[in-house]
Amino acid sequence: MNLAVAAQIISFLAALVLLCAFGMLVQRRMYGLIHLFAWQGLFLSISTAVVGFVAGKHHLYISSLLTLSLKVFLLPYILHVLIQRLKIQKEVETVVNVPMTMLIGIALVIFSYHLTAPVREISTLVTRSVLAIALATVMIGLLMMITRRHAVTQIIGFLAMENGLFFAATSATYGMPLVVELGVALDVLIAAFIFGIFFFHIHTTFDSLDVEQMARLKEGD
């Protein structure tokens, strides 16, 4: 596989990752959201494997497998269980309306391209063109956390952000050292568990997972 073809494939996968990010931004159903997250993880894992193959960095295969098992199977499964236990399949409420969110998302993508322009000039990596998309994915994840009111969607936004960071790491420098990646993967897993436990508690305390309710915790003056 020569470099040009590889670059094409990676760009295509990056486009799919971005698409999934936008999909998550507008998806109102909880299950749909989790499926989109799993798809994003899948594309991410494939692209990592491709980068590993092209660059000859074999530890990226391990990262890719880790991503596949964690973000495509385990985390979506945990979230599924969570949703079923808590019976919250209903539609997701947003704070800002959907078209507006989309427009902000598009602006963020353009902004990321503008931001990474100097990096693209000097970098010689195959993956340099997708750095902007990785950055955009991070920002869209954050945007998702801001625009949703439901605690479970916020954690999905958080995990999507993490996906973006991982993508940025592979595309900008051919991945972080394996130790770091293992650590990050473990962190994400633990974070998911902790979130899960917290949700149970929040649910029992507030009878809802709407984060608006938590504004009651604010200290009065």
Binding site: M145, I146, R149, V211, M214, A215, R216, L217, K218
Partner: peptide, 23 residues
């Protein structure tokens, strides 16, 4: 103290805007 809204979204917006401005 007005910054303290008690809403997660508000806090996230603070960090989001900070990141964008810094970038």
């Amino acid at each position: 103290g007005r910054l303290q809204q008690g809403r997660i979204q508000a806090y996230l917006i603070y960090s989001f805007v900070t990141i964008i401005v810094l970038l």
